[in-house]
């Protein structure tokens, strides 16, 4: 009996988790403009429409630009912060870590309002820079945690060994610590990119018509009219997530292989 409870509950819960996307995303290829089954035929026409419309292509391009900029900035401040706090004392480290991680727990609507007001007063409203700055703050905690985890995972004897051979602090950091913590930086960079690429609420408050990102375009599309192009965009965003997950998996596999050697 216990076994049947296990299987029934697992299958039902898994279906709830997986089916919505599995059912909806294929509709991107449906010839009909009605978003329902049975599918009438297979077509790439809606993809053509998305890539043919400047409003969509502009949004895709904006998203890539913003995510790339936010990622670079997040890696810089998150990486520096993580490396820096490892050198501080216990109490300071706790306080600083709480500060650097805190943007992930503040409700996004609250940061959105805060950014919108502050950037508005600073005359940055609607600019590409405001989006990059805001998304960098949202991505930095992920970089921070990821780098901090990989720095803490390092064997302290490696640094001591390098020191015993006469390497200076800077040299050790540059040639021993940094290469070993590189996977943490890389994972953090991916986290920061995907966070910015998928972000809606803050962008909703900051983006001007010409700096609209893909999620914002999708959000307004959804409120406007449901059509297959929306499912196409959803599919594209899911593909980016899938790629991200595959990249992470690949890195983990390589990391595991490296630590086994």
């Amino acid at each position: 009996m216990a076994r049947s409870i296990f299987w029934i509950s697992t299958v039902l819960c898994l279906a709830f988790l997986a089916l919505p996307l599995l059912l909806v995303l294929p509709l991107a290829f449906n010839t009909s403009s009605f978003l329902t089954y049975p599918m009438e035929g297979f077509t790439f026409a809606w993809f053509g429409e998305v890539f043919g419309q400047p409003s969509w292509t502009k949004a895709i391009w904006n998203s890539v630009k913003v995510a790339a900029g936010a990622m670079a900035l997040a890696v810089l401040i998150g990486g520096l912060a993580a490396t820096g706090v490892t050198l501080t004392g216990r109490v300071l480290q706790m306080v600083l870590s709480a500060l650097f991680v805190s943007p992930v727990v503040v409700p996004s609507i609250v940061v959105a309002v805060a950014f919108a007001y502050a950037f508005g007063r600073a005359g940055l409203s609607g600019s590409y820079a405001s989006l990059v700055l805001a998304h960098a703050i949202l991505g930095a905690p992920l970089v921070f945690l990821s780098v901090l985890t990989s720095l803490r995972g390092l064997d302290p004897d490696l640094d001591r060994a390098a020191a015993s051979m006469g390497a200076s602090r800077l040299h050790r950091f540059r040639h021993v610590t940094l290469p070993l913590a590189a996977p943490g930086f890389l994972a953090g960079a991916l986290f920061a990119f995907i966070t910015s690429f998928d972000e809606v609420v803050v962008a909703l408050f900051l983006a001007a018509p010409e700096s609209t990102t893909l999620p914002i375009a999708l959000f307004s599309g959804l409120r406007d009219r449901l059509q297959p192009t929306i499912v196409v965009v959803a599919l594209l965003l899911s593909l980016v997530s899938l790629l991200f997950l595959l990249a992470m998996g690949q890195m983990q596999k390589r990391g595991a292989a490296a630590s086994r050697n």
């Binding site: 909806v24 995303l25 999620p215 999708l218 959000f219 959803a234 965003l237 899911s238 997530s241 997950l245």
Partner: peptide
């Protein structure tokens, strides 16, 4: 890791 918006989209369609 799939965007909240994408998953909400799926429910709107469903």
């Amino acid at each position: 890791w799939t965007s909240i918006l994408v998953r909400t989209t799926a429910w709107v369609v469903l």
